[in-house]
Design a protein around this nucleic acid. Structure first.
Lengths: 120, 120
DNA sequence: TCCATACTTCCAGAATGCCAGAATGATGGA
DNA sequence: TCCATCATTCTGGCATTCTGGAAGTATGGA
């Protein structure tokens, strides 16, 4: 992940509809939701939503898979992880402790309970 | 942190110069850097950089403090933490394990070494 | 008081993004 | 083959953002 890719991902999340959709998909996990459902839930025309979903997809934040006539969108976990990792890498010049309160408790717990400790 | 505030923060990071500046400040920790230094390092006119810094500041990602004639900018740790926490809250509908590989190892280690476990 | 330094605000042109109507694919049933 | 459904692409109007020159606002030294 380089600066351009990260900026693109942040831009994708910088729009309220897209941010809401991303979080909606996050709640639905790997199964995802069909594009039509997403549009309906967001109260957005299908074509507009299609554009938003394309932006999220190009940014590597969601993934599309066709299933018969519907197209399901689901979060791309590696994408969001890479984005956050990129954002905070080299934090405080690598000096542990200088920014310890940054993200420690808030992040893993909010998502998936205590972390296991091994790499992803 | 609500959706509007989060979108504003992402928008602040969605611009390459600002993203580069934010990461630069992250490396400099709480001490921060004077606005002039930041502009010089980025190769950006002072007025343009001032606008960018104002955007980051309004988004709650950096904090300004005056010191004699200079204005130092430093990362706002609570801001970035709140942003990431908001982004992944309710991940997978609260079902631990469904998205376990999401961020566990990558994030805290990249920043500050093993987490302590207590709240910030 | 006068000047130099450091930074911010004002402004306008160029570029980019958002949005939804209309038209165009893709898929499956009759 | 024809039609209905689901989704994407095309298009143009509108709004926002980016950028830097010029002017304005603090701060401190002489």
């Amino acid at each position: 992940m380089d600066e351009t890719a990260a900026a693109e991902a942040f831009a994708a999340l910088a729009q309220e509809t897209r941010l809401r959709v991303f979080r909606l998909l996050l709640r639905h996990g790997p199964a995802g939701l069909p594009a039509g459902d997403i549009a309906r839930r967001a109260g957005t025309p299908a074509n507009t939503m299609s554009t938003h979903l394309a932006v999220l997809s190009r940014a590597g934040l969601v993934q599309a898979r066709r299933e018969s006539r519907q197209v399901f969108y689901a979060v791309e976990l590696t994408g969001i992880r890479a984005l956050v990792a990129f954002l905070v890498e080299d934090c405080c010049g690598g000096r542990p402790g200088a920014c310890a309160p940054l993200l420690d408790a808030a992040l893993p717990l909010a998502c998936c309970g205590p972390v296991t400790g091994d790499r992803a």
